[in-house]
Amino acid sequence: DETGKELVLVLYDYQEKSPREVTIKKGDILTLLNSTNKDWWKIEVNDRQGFVPAAYLKKLD
């Protein structure tokens, strides 16, 4: 059920640097789980959840 889920576009590649982070690729469109922290957003990638720098993402309307 995708209702109410926010999507984000990945602006730059990011390689995870800790187990709490996930790797993302430029151009991916992913589900945003939590954006309350202005610097690190929690997203879902391939059934994995983790954090990436918010500056690497853009919210889609």
Rank of each mutant, 00 (worst) to 15 (best):
D1H: 13
D1C: 14
E2T: 14
E2A: 13
T3L: 13
T3Y: 14
T3N: 13
G4E: 13
G4H: 15
G4Y: 13
K5P: 13
K5Q: 12
K5M: 10
E6Y: 11
E6C: 14
L7D: 04
V8E: 00
V8H: 01
L9F: 07
L9M: 09
L9N: 02
V10G: 04
Y12I: 08
Y12F: 13
Y12D: 10
D13L: 02
Y14V: 01
Y14N: 00
Y14M: 01
Y14L: 02
Y14G: 00
Y14A: 01
Q15I: 13
Q15R: 09
Q15K: 13
E16K: 11
E16T: 07
E16G: 12
K17H: 08
K17R: 14
S18C: 09
S18M: 08
S18N: 11
P19L: 08
P19E: 12
P19M: 09
P19C: 08
R20W: 15
R20L: 14
R20N: 14
E21H: 05
E21W: 03
E21K: 03
V22N: 02
V22F: 06
V22Y: 02
V22A: 09
V22I: 08
T23G: 04
T23E: 03
T23S: 15
I24F: 02
K25I: 10
K25M: 09
K26E: 07
K26R: 10
G27L: 02
G27Q: 02
D28Q: 15
D28W: 15
D28P: 01
I29P: 00
L30N: 07
T31R: 14
T31S: 09
T31W: 13
T31P: 15
L32K: 01
L32H: 01
L32R: 01
L33K: 05
L33V: 10
N34W: 06
N34T: 07
T36F: 08
T36L: 11
N37K: 06
K38R: 11
K38I: 10
K38G: 09
K38A: 13
D39Y: 15
D39V: 11
D39I: 14
W40S: 03
W40K: 02
W41K: 00
W41P: 00
K42C: 12
K42V: 13
I43W: 00
E44P: 00
E44Y: 06
E44S: 09
V45A: 12
V45H: 13
V45E: 03
N46V: 12
N46C: 13
N46Y: 13
D47S: 12
D47M: 11
R48H: 07
R48I: 08
R48K: 10
Q49C: 09
G50K: 02
G50V: 09
G50M: 07
F51H: 05
F51R: 03
F51G: 01
F51K: 02
V52C: 05
V52D: 01
V52Q: 00
V52W: 01
A54C: 06
A54Y: 02
A54P: 06
A54D: 02
A55F: 11
A55G: 10
A55R: 14
Y56H: 15
L57Y: 01
L57M: 03
K58E: 13
K59V: 10
K59I: 14
L60D: 03
L60A: 04
D61F: 10
D61S: 13
